[in-house]
Design a protein around this nucleic acid. Structure first.
Lengths: 196, 196
DNA sequence: TTGATTACATTTTCTCCATTCTGTAACTCA
DNA sequence: TGAGTTACAGAATGGAGAAAATGTAATCAA
């Protein structure tokens, strides 16, 4: 039993909550571990019992968001609709989630992305899981597998990449995404099996 | 007749040359108008007779490169091959040019892009001309027009956008670009006329 | 009269130092 | 024993004043 009355896991979650609030309020660059610790009622050194370093806390902030996003996309994957419909819904959900996040929490979204160049393991692992989900949907639709999933993700990079997510109004972009997606899926269907 | 012995146009070109050399040697951020002027044998204020401001000189550096790139792509557009082949060659040329530039002159390529966020008129005008060229090729191939050109450029953003151009080895990326391009073109062919 | 110069106002960048922050270690207490 | 504390070293940040760069205006010369 820790002296703060929080289990280790609860303490981690509390630290993440506080970090999110503070980044929203004061910006990504001004987050101080000492501030987070003070708000938890502990010394800053105590945080190192829960997180290896500051980057690990920021990873946890991001991971909590990514896990939420995954639960949404996974629900779509598991839905009852035809696979083709689920593919569209899956991409639209990804776009809307990212777009909304980028607009509502720009400090967290862009700050973390710029600071890490998207190269952190927590990001890479998430992207791999997304590609796996997509590969599953494509397989269900009879349009391919892992290779086609990678290709399709690249085709929609203009709509999903962090550095491009806020170009243009959300409704218009969503419509453009759908148009492009349908064309690429048609292309996949037309060329299916040509190369194995 | 100017005292330097250079016509206005030659002076502009000389300034651009010197700026390119200095950016290569010392980096984009450290380019000083005074250094360029000294190397030309004039005072720094004389440069303002040729360029509105420093940004205009940097625009000229970029424009000289963009003009060269356009002459290459325009030659492909005017070639004798079937339109479908020219579309592939056109995208591959764009990718190879950008990729080579980003690798050989990263300070100029990324420095300018980061400093301007790609929002300078000289960049926008170039991109519009690229889209026009592509629209022409698509029309020749019977695959659409301006709208389809925009869509196709978005589909290949992952391979052509400055912030993504150096991801992966050039040969592999070129092959991936070609695969995706063929699929999108197949999709355009399959859905041609559906929406007008 | 145009291309260039010097002189100068305004920004921007640099430098240095004090402060703050991160991360580690030795220690404390329930 | 493990969650937390204090103490501290090294790294990063911030701010003030100095230095330098950009951009403008008045002037000069071929």
């Amino acid at each position: 039993m820790p002296r703060t009355g929080l289990t280790p896991e609860a303490a981690r979650q509390r630290a993440v909550e506080i970090a999110v609030e503070r980044i929203r309020a004061h910006g990504f660059a001004k987050l101080r571990l000492a501030d987070v610790a003070r708000e938890m009622g502990v010394s800053h050194a105590a945080l190192y019992g829960h997180f290896r370093d500051k980057a690990a806390l920021l990873d946890a902030v991001t991971e909590s968001w990514l896990a939420e996003a995954r639960s949404r996309t996974a629900a779509i994957c598991a839905g009852p609709e035809p696979a083709a419909e689920r593919i569209e819904a899956w991409f639209l959900e990804r776009y809307r989630l990212k777009s909304a996040r980028a607009r509502s929490d720009p400090e967290i979204f862009f700050g973390y992305n710029e600071a890490t160049c998207g190269a952190r393991p927590v990001i890479q692992a998430h992207l791999e899981r997304m590609t796996d989900e997509l590969a599953g949907l494509l397989a269900e639709a009879g349009l391919g597998g892992a290779a086609e999933a990678v290709l399709l993700e690249e085709a929609l990079t203009a709509f999903l990449h962090p550095s491009l997510i806020t170009s243009g109004p959300e409704a218009g972009r969503a419509a453009d995404l759908t148009r492009l997606l349908r064309i690429v899926l048609a292309g996949l269907a037309a060329t299916a099996g040509e190369h194995g």
